[in-house]
């Protein structure tokens, strides 16, 4: 078994298994927690609407904070959208998803993917520089932040190297790319990458509380 066989076989299977294990553990562990009773009289009966509003509206900065958050938010948008294009637009990735979930969609041309990957890479580097230089963000950051950043950028770097056939034989570069994605899968449930799932719950819960109190979400 060579490195590519290992990456496509047992490593992929076990990384998915750990991903599934961790995500279900954390999700059920949170969803089944006891709710804190709010004995106050509700000022409005729009908990569900409040949850939905919070999930949607908080994807955009409030006017009051815009001046301070626009730069960070712009970087975040660029690398999130870029990652989405690369992950969900590249045909080999779509084929992997189809083999797992049975759903597929048309892919994008290679040039669009490669351009998005380079832009995403640049945005991630800018995000790291901001984290390292921002006086508050620097203090708030821990190992989880830096490691989550590393496992996110690694598949992009290895993917671009594989596409360019730079740094080794293609099958080895491809194997390293797949292994880097597997590292992301393994880390995903246990670090801050889990925000990709938990942001819905966190925003939703805030929206429920605010909605009940009749506050703006």
């Amino acid at each position: 078994m060579n490195l590519l066989d290992f990456a496509r076989g047992p490593a992929l299977e076990w990384s998915f298994a750990i991903f599934l294990f961790g995500v279900l553990w954390r999700l059920l562990g949170i969803l089944l927690l006891r709710r804190v009773h709010d004995y106050s009289e509700p000022r409005a009966h729009r908990a569900a609407l409040g949850a939905l509003q919070a999930i949607v509206r908080r994807t955009w900065p409030r006017k009051e904070f815009r001046a301070r958050t626009t730069y960070g938010l712009a970087i975040s948008y660029v690398f999130h959208v870029g990652l989405a294009i690369v992950v969900f637009g590249f045909v080999p990735h779509i084929l992997l998803i189809r083999s797992l979930l049975g759903v597929s969609w048309p892919g994008l041309p290679g040039a669009v993917i490669y351009f998005s990957a380079v832009v995403t890479l640049a945005a991630l580097v800018m995000a790291l520089i901001r984290r390292l230089t921002h006086p508050v963000l620097k203090l708030l950051s821990n190992f989880d932040d830096y490691f989550s950043w590393a496992v996110t950028i690694a598949p992009l770097v290895t993917g671009l190297l594989a596409v360019a056939h730079y740094g080794g034989r293609y099958e080895n570069l491809l194997a390293v790319h797949i292994l880097s994605v597997e590292l992301l899968f393994i880390w995903f449930p246990f670090g801050k990458l889990m925000h990709a799932v938990l942001f819905v719950l966190a925003r939703g819960q805030t929206g429920v509380v605010y909605g009940r109190r009749g506050a703006s979400t």
């Binding site: 076989g9 992929l12 294990f21 279900l24 553990w25 059920l28 562990g29 084929l95 083999s99």
Partner: peptide
């Protein structure tokens, strides 16, 4: 780009174990 799977057993066991531990933790 697709994987070579040994079957659904490993994923199934992982899902059940994850769900069980999540419920247990709750």
């Amino acid at each position: 780009s697709t994987g070579t799977w040994s079957g659904a057993t490993v994923l199934g066991v992982a899902a059940v174990a994850g769900a069980a531990i999540g419920v247990g933790a709750a």
